[in-house]
Design a protein around this nucleic acid. Sequence first.
DNA 1: ACAAAAATTAAACAATTGTTTGAATTAAAT
DNA 2: ATTTAATTCAAACAATTGTTTAATTTTTGT
Lengths: 209, 209
Amino acid sequence: MEFNEKQIQIIEIAEKLFAERGFDGTTVRDIADEAEINVAMISYYFGSKEKLMEALFELRVGSVIIRVESLIKDESLSPIEKVNMLIDEHIDRVLQKQCFHKVMMGVLVTNKNPAILEAANSIKIRNAAIITELIKEGQKKGQFKKKVDVILMINTMVGTVSQCMMSQQYYREFNKQQDVPDDEFLLTLKRRLSIHIKTLFKAILTNEA
Amino acid sequence: MEFNEKQIQIIEIAEKLFAERGFDGTTVRDIADEAEINVAMISYYFGSKEKLMEALFELRVGSVIIRVESLIKDESLSPIEKVNMLIDEHIDRVLQKQCFHKVMMGVLVTNKNPAILEAANSIKIRNAAIITELIKEGQKKGQFKKKVDVILMINTMVGTVSQCMMSQQYYREFNKQQDVPDDEFLLTLKRRLSIHIKTLFKAILTNEA
DNA sequence: ACAAAAATTAAACAATTGTTTGAATTAAAT
DNA sequence: ATTTAATTCAAACAATTGTTTAATTTTTGT
């Protein structure tokens, strides 16, 4: 489905509120007030609150896949370089769309709407498949260890990034960076997170004594 | 506060439902039905749905701290041994009380009730303080690297375990362990998680070329 | 300028929400 | 056995929920 400006505006405000208060904690009137529209417009444009949630996923999920697909096929990159790029890709994706990922976390714990749960899970499965492929490639080339638990690795990447996103205020205070501007702090966080996870992955993947 | 049997039964059923459906997604009638009590009993025993949630945290949070405190002071253990024990401690705690940790995750994303948010955060901060202490000890003894981002480390531990808990069904299918009994699979998961995170921590903490 | 379509609105809808009531039942105390 | 307190219950409560209605305004196409 294609969304017009007004619809996207509503979706993005709903996204923000769903992230802050959860799906059930957000009323259609909350959304209408924040978006400065009439309550009926939500049913008018989306059919229902539930369908509005589905529209949010439709809007956000589409853009994910393409960039990653082409990455794998690139022959000029070594397996570890690809893995590293995938890590940065993931960090960027989550930290650029923090609200959406909070919403997605909420969906993954409270498994209510099967259609949305399916959408959220498909992202996860695709991720797993891609990384698995990548690691096999590295193993064939003798650059990676033979025994690697891919799922645990992915869980570490996803979990670490999620955890950092959720507790970034705390991280900021701990590092005494309250005075630096938001976007600058975000860059610092990304950079450190990137190095951190790459170090972890290297330790798991690479052959050493 | 002290809870009697009936209260604990209600709390634990509420815990399960809050974990599955979220706080706002669970009605007091859902809880009453599942617990086979009258709806009014919830107000009677706890005052309100909100207070029931607070009671859940009161019941669960209390037991956490003591065991860890004594661990740090133990002179017979090396820093890395202590860190490893802390990792196992955390894995056990989360996987033994999965529902509660799902509830806590929900609280941490949708920051509504300040009292509960405070309770959840205090656990995190205490954790951070303890591990920081431990690492400083290891650094003094020359066993750990000088530059270590403790918060990122903790986020990796907490995030990885949370992620594993949330997606354990998927992990089970991926490893074709659907036929093994629940508790046996849980043991396998714990063991692998333990090794996994310890490996990660070792890579971050230990000095190498 | 006019007619058709789309967008917007206030009001109403029935259903569900958390909570309270006041009577009935059970348990404990004297 | 009688009184008192604690527990349980069905029913009612007002407030809030998502959704629909029907009228009105705005936009679009001709």
